[in-house]
């Protein structure tokens, strides 16, 4: 009996790839589409309500963001958002509620290590990179816009 597996790493990876069950792509896309779409419609409804009460457009959409972030945080804290994420996948990750979920989830989890170095330090464990790259890319955009404005 041969004690070595007679395959290169590449051959083994390809072989494993072939044997592994793939994610149910169509089903996942369906749920991502549905849940993502519905969250966006809820956002639109909130905006419309604020517009109706005479808030200017910009304020209405800022209020929408705040309320959706609140909803995401609330659903996370009562352990519902993780259940939603199980079938909605990207449909619950990509909307702003998913950003809120990724802030709250580590904060809850690391509370056992204390309020400062646990909750405080780990709150942006997943969402931190979003701020780093968001702010950095906005500064890059701003810089080039400023440059172009000067020379044109």
């Amino acid at each position: 009996m041969n004690t070595n597996i007679d395959m290169s790493n590449k051959e083994y990876s390809d072989y494993v790839e072939k044997k592994a069950t793939n994610s149910p792509l169509l089903k996942n896309i369906f749920w991502a589409f549905l849940v993502g779409g519905i969250i966006c419609m809820i956002g639109q409804a909130i905006t419309d309500v604020f517009l109706k009460f005479g808030f200017p457009k910009e304020q209405a959409s800022t209020y929408t963001t705040i309320i959706l972030i609140f909803l995401g945080a609330f659903l996370t804290s009562i352990n519902l958002y993780s259940k939603l994420g199980k079938f909605a996948g990207a449909g619950s990750v990509i909307p702003i509620t998913g950003f809120s979920n990724s802030v709250v989830a580590p904060a809850i989890e690391f509370k056992t290590e204390g309020y400062i170095l646990g909750l405080g330090a780990n709150m942006f464990k997943i969402a931190g990179p979003v701020l780093v790259y968001g702010v950095t890319s906005s500064i890059i955009v701003g810089f080039f816009y400023w440059l172009i404005k000067i020379f044109l």
């Binding site: 793939n22 993780s82 939603l84 994420g85 619950s92 990750v93 989830a105 580590p106």
Partner: peptide, 13 residues
């Protein structure tokens, strides 16, 4: 892996 409350999907493997 990820915090428990984080909503994400597990790979089938």
């Amino acid at each position: 892996r990820m915090p428990l409350e984080h909503g994400n999907q597990q790979s089938p493997t």
